[in-house]
Amino acid sequence: MSIIVNTSRLISEWLATTKPEEEINVQRLSAILAIKLNNYGVIFSVLIFGYLTNYFWSSCIALVSFIVIRIQTGGFHLKNLDHCFLISLLMLISFSMVELNIWFIVLLNSASIIVVMKYSQRYKFLPCLVISLNFIGLFPAASLSFMGQALTLLINRRWR
């Protein structure tokens, strides 16, 4: 079992003992808490790492870009939250530290729009609009985040 799931289970069991008069579904609370711990853990870790390595604003751009597109398009989910945490963390940290030339940013943005238009199971217009804004901003971290999310759509499509 994963560290995140064990931690959330322990917290949920502790919360259940603090209010014995209330009926708390420990299993449900544990599942919700595990997802929250994973999501906020990644966000907090990326921001701290970005601050410590002087890539804070780039880390913020990578995070916001990835989260906005991820919420809108869906994508592949790993079964183990520890793996999800580590891969998300490594991916977002590396996205914030890479410099790209303008033409590569344009290429990544274009490829991301094509993948989102073809494979997104949820929304298409808003994610494509957000990606298109990066043709103006030309942020390397954003274009890498968009492409990273587009790849999760391709992986999700392949393993259905």
Rank of each mutant, 00 (worst) to 15 (best):
V116T: 06
T152K: 03
F95P: 03
N54V: 06
T53N: 07
V26P: 00
S88T: 04
T7Y: 05
V68D: 05
H77A: 00
S120T: 02
C60R: 05
L129K: 02
I3W: 01
V116N: 06
L129D: 14
L153S: 00
L129A: 08
Q27I: 08
I43Y: 10
L153G: 02
V64W: 13
V130D: 02
L47P: 10
M97C: 11
T7K: 05
W103P: 01
A31S: 15
H77P: 04
H77K: 03
T18M: 10
F66N: 13
M117G: 07
W14P: 13
N80M: 05
T17H: 12
L151H: 13
S132H: 13
S59Q: 06
S8P: 01
A142G: 01
W14H: 12
H83K: 14
V64M: 13
S12R: 02
C60Y: 09
V115T: 07
I113F: 12
I114P: 00
I93E: 01
F146L: 06
A111N: 03
S143Q: 01
A62L: 15
L47I: 06
I24G: 03
I136H: 00
I3F: 09
G41C: 07
L92Q: 00
R157P: 01
F49T: 09
P140Y: 14
A142D: 02
S132C: 08
M1P: 06
